[in-house]
């Protein structure tokens, strides 16, 4: 609160009204599809075709540094309308958003799970998730917060309680909470994942939880298991999408084999941590 002699507060109008932006902040917005129209590569050659994303579907982006992945993601985030170097346009449910819609969605269309492994806010887990639930104006914030905590604990190798400080969670616990919170409470209809590490998080369950959120999911990854978990892969070269590859039956078999190897590695890790011998 301001102290009594803090200063003269002069509002612009008698009762400063909420901005259109703030009024629409909690309206649920979930496009069933998102299209990035074909643009051009670094030599201005046209891209092969449009890329259509659907909710509940995972797309992986692959290609070396400088091949155009970041530019592609930034075209999505900035709701490109032919105004970026690639010339792409973003369509939501097949339609280019008008100026007002673009303005409202800027910075909010895409939620990001980056490689960040630590929280910085000085709050405990319960207060933090509750604050997030309240910001979304959900009917029962307490229950929503409990669901997030339960989901996070299902992903984390080592459970944690509601009173734990965010900054004291382990890397795996932090990641599990970030994933559960994003899946269950984030407003943004599009989710960009920048790797999910093995450290202390059940990758398969994490993807299932995120898929159940009905978001459009895009993964930028070098991890073969994550890349193969995607329904399809976009391969980048020279600033444009070079190929769109759907997962084949043979690849599915390889994915299963790799997943088994990961389970085995996790099992051995858990045994070694518990001081058991592997004979």
């Amino acid at each position: 609160m301001l102290s009594e002699d803090a200063g003269l507060d002069v509002p612009e109008s008698p009762d400063s009204p909420d901005s259109p932006e703030s009024q629409s902040e909690n309206r649920i917005y979930a496009p069933a599809s998102m299209t990035l129209t074909a643009g051009r590569d670094k030599s201005s050659r046209p891209e092969a075709g449009d890329v259509v994303f659907r909710s509940g579907e995972i797309t992986a982006l692959l290609g070396p540094t400088g091949s155009g992945k970041s530019r592609f993601l930034s075209d999505i985030e900035s709701l490109a309308c032919g105004d970026t170097p690639t010339g792409r346009t973003l369509l939501l449910d097949g339609r280019a958003p008008d100026a007002d819609e673009r303005f409202e969605l800027q910075g909010r269309l895409v939620a990001q799970l980056t490689q960040n492994m630590n929280f910085v806010l000085d709050m405990n887990v319960r207060d933090f998730v509750l604050a997030h639930a309240m910001s979304r104006e959900v009917a029962d914030p307490e229950a929503a917060a409990r669901r997030v905590l339960d989901a996070a604990n299902a992903l984390a190798g080592e459970p944690f309680g509601p009173g734990a400080q965010l900054t004291q969670l382990s890397g795996g616990q932090s990641r599990a909470l970030m994933i559960a919170d994003t899946a269950l409470l984030s407003w943004s209809p599009v989710l960009l994942i920048d790797e999910i590490e093995n450290a202390g998080v059940d990758k398969r369950r994490a993807l299932d939880l995120l898929l159940a959120s009905d978001k459009i999911i895009v993964i930028a990854t070098h991890d073969p298991v994550l890349a193969l978990s995607a329904d399809r892969r976009l391969v980048f070269e020279h600033g444009a999408v070079r190929a769109v590859q759907a997962r084949t039956g043979a690849e599915e078999a390889i994915l299963t084999r790799l997943e088994h190897m990961e389970v085995e590695i996790s099992r051995v890790r858990a045994m070694l941590r518990a001081g058991e011998t592997l004979d």
Partner: peptide, 10 residues
């Protein structure tokens, strides 16, 4: 870019 999506939103 230094904090989580959840922290940005809160």
């Amino acid at each position: 870019d230094l904090v989580s999506q959840a922290e940005r939103e809160v």
